[in-house]
Write a protein that binds this DNA or RNA. Structure first.
Lengths: 339, 339
DNA sequence: AACTCTTTTCAAAACAATTCACATCCTTAT
DNA sequence: ATAAGGATGTGAATTGTTTTGAAAAGAGTT
């Protein structure tokens, strides 16, 4: 069945499409009486504006693309949920693009979003250098871009990140207070933005607090459970092992906890575990996990708000860089080191 | 900066836009030589087709709306991730719409999706009667609809669901094998499709296996952790209480586990817990949770495939109803009842 | 040279909205 | 009576693409 358009309304009312458009969009130049009639007729016919046609003319689509690595990661689903809340209020739709850590997908999705004339893109970029020009092109072409979680190169655009370096530094500092002198870590993707920053903070703290940290105690390579589990097994099977271990995202934390369980290591008596990110399971597993959490709702809200500002604001303003702090949630996986 | 369009390409090459369009879309009637030149020029100028204009003409947008209650629910994020995988392969985008259990949001989002001329909608409907006409209108207007997780009324459209009744029936049956004769339950939204089906299967099994089930042992009302936690506390604080309890989705399961932990009830020795849905935490908490899981990836894949079939298929076919089975994952929260 | 046939190309008409520049109407002032 | 001015309404252009019917060009046949 054909959709009703303003032409139909105009014809029914014996007026012109221009007038109908003006009336429906709340522009002046239409008498109150006629305007009312137009609204009534629109409702009666079940008129819904055609966003494509409107978008063509106004070059505004009320659509925002969101590039993330994996929607199944609670970190991302929480951030997105929070973005969705602010965008929904302004009648925007979100296009979710799972790019994994795959630059090819990132590229294809960006082009798809451009072809759909999205008003803006909120992205946690893979960080691959070869897609940097793509992002720059977006900015040049007037598609607003807000980066979150990770930033790349010298892209002149808004961004919302967490001070990852400080986060792991604080985590180590906290462990230090519990008397830990031997420390290990499970990291994620070394050369990713978050991965490297978190490692940096870790090593810095290790140095500052004069802890012992052997190469064999620091392993990783991927932000996933399986890899982290294996790395944790390796680290913890050593005869001489750390008294505390720090994981660098939610999946790695999960891997560590699984390894610990399998090796029947008592946490926190024999080993303290510091997690990263928060997840439901950390509240119910035994022991519950002490962890550095990122303020996912603030991240999402801020990113969405920045994008809306950029999209709806008339004037061009300087790129903003919002840096948020991670915070420590104290639960039961960290304890004093055994004498 | 202005986007390059086919007119620009045509002008540069001294040909007509019709020819450029034909060449780029792989239609015949363009000499190989000219076609090659057109492709080269398009690449050189960085041409990306304008989806709005294309959509106007072809009334195809390569966009699919997805209505769910909450992206933070791992059940939904897994299903969506799986949908995304199949839709991405065919160059479709997903518009995620978090509707909570709110019919108003559902209505607004559906209208938004219509205005954006999505090719189809995959929805887990709230089930509110007053939005049924909206869904019917979609179908009438040629927007393909695939329902999943829940179905509503007499809507003539494809659907993918799990046999929820059988799922809880099987769960109780399993508990019966462990000698449980007194059983309780934490349910979700009674009048929701999934909620009522699961309850139905539960009561049926309770009757069939001649179990004892007091009214005070069956509580619920919302599919969330807090409410379920409170209900579980109430049930388990009673002097005469069930030896097994069954939760009816992932959040309710989490609530039960928290209550159990707080009451220092030993699971499975003092109480067996049967969960529903799967989640990371169920694998790491103590004890790990035995649970009825829905095949999220199959659900997502099937729903997306059905939608693609409907959207891309020429001929109209009968609405399909795919019913999948939940399966039991045996872990450690269910044990033999104490003598 | 005139004709058919095939291949290649083009001009113009949609698609549904917005918007600019006019046109019309009515009132009021000169 | 005429002019001015404000309010209200209209026609037509515009947005970028696809698509259709027709035209042009080239090749082969008579």
């Amino acid at each position: 069945m054909k959709r009703v358009n303003i032409k139909d309304i105009a014809k029914e009312l014996g007026t012109s499409i221009a007038t109908v458009s003006r009336a429906l969009n709340g522009k002046e130049g239409v008498s109150d009486e006629l305007r009312k009639k137009i609204f009534e007729k629109a409702k009666e016919l079940g008129y819904i504006a055609n966003g494509l046609a409107r978008g063509m003319k106004t070059s505004k689509t009320f659509t925002v693309g969101v590039l993330i690595s994996d929607i199944r990661n609670p970190y991302f689903s929480e951030v997105i949920s929070s973005m969705e809340r602010v965008l929904y209020a302004k009648n925007y739709n979100l296009m979710i693009c799972n790019v994994g850590e795959n630059p090819e997908r990132e590229k294809k999705y960006i082009n798809l979003l451009v072809s759909k004339n999205v008003d803006g893109i909120i992205a946690a970029p893979t960080g691959d250098e070869k897609n940097l020009p793509l992002y720059k092109k977006l900015v040049r072409h007037g598609i607003k871009v807000v980066l979150f979680d990770r930033i790349i190169g010298d892209l002149q655009t808004d961004s919302v990140i967490v001070d990852n370096e400080a986060a792991t530094y604080e985590a180590v500092k906290y462990l230090n207070r519990f008397g830990h002198r031997r420390i290990g870590a499970i990291y994620g993707i070394e050369k990713s933005y978050t991965g490297s920053e978190r490692l940096k903070g870790f090593f810095e703290a290790v140095k500052d607090f004069k802890m012992e940290c052997k190469d064999e105690w620091v392993k990783g390579g991927e932000f996933n459970e399986e890899k982290s589990y294996k790395c944790a097994l390796e680290i913890l099977s050593q005869k001489y092992r750390p008294t505390a271990i720090i994981a660098m995202n939610n999946f790695t934390t999960l891997g560590v906890m699984r390894a610990v369980k399998e090796l029947k290591i008592n946490v926190p008596d024999e080993l303290s575990v510091m997690g990263f990110d928060d997840a439901e399971w950390m509240k119910v597993c035994s022991p519950t996990v002490t962890t550095m959490v990122q303020p996912t709702d603030v991240i999402g809200m801020t990113a969405a708000t920045l994008l809306l500002d950029a999209v709806e604001g008339e004037l061009v303003r300087k790129p903003q860089k919002v840096v948020l702090k991670a915070s420590l949630i104290k639960r039961n996986s960290v304890g004093f080191v055994e004498k």
